[in-house]
């Protein structure tokens, strides 16, 4: 384990920010281009994970454990969010027989 973490030492902090930015953007593109509600939900999870990775990288960078505690809280929050969101999707499916978000246009305009 020590050897593994020693190899980390050369990675610049900017590259972690780039990686997180790219993955966050992939999540945004997923939300914008897909119509299945469950896939949109998975894109949101992708965005949450990009933020988690960035928080951990900055926590290591500034030698402060608070960042990793925040990541832990975000994970607990994501679990709660997934439970409520999936139950809403199940309810939508029960009422409309599909998970297409274009069916749910009553609140549009």
């Amino acid at each position: 384990m020590d050897n593994l973490t020693q190899t980390l030492q050369g990675v610049p902090l900017n590259h972690y920010i780039w990686l997180s930015a790219i993955i966050f953007t992939i999540g945004v593109i997923g939300v914008l281009t897909r119509r299945n509600a469950i896939v949109i939900f998975m894109s949101v999870e992708l965005m949450l994970n990009a933020v988690n990775l960035l928080l951990t990288a900055f926590s290591v960078h500034s030698n402060d454990p608070s960042g990793q505690v925040f990541v832990f809280f975000i994970m607990a929050l994501a679990a709660a969010e997934v439970a409520v969101g999936l139950s809403i999707i199940v309810m939508v499916y029960r009422n409309t027989q599909s998970t297409d978000i274009n069916v749910l246009n009553r609140l549009k305009w």
Binding site: L4, L8, V71, A79
Partner: peptide
């Protein structure tokens, strides 16, 4: 990535909570 950052607690929690619990919930609903 978490293991490379030496955040071992987060690696284990990510493994158990995300891959174990949340993704199984997604598959189950699908």
């Amino acid at each position: 990535h978490y293991i490379l950052l030496n955040a071992q607690f987060l690696a284990v929690v990510n493994f158990i909570v995300y891959m174990g619990a949340i993704m199984v919930l997604f598959l189950f609903v699908l």
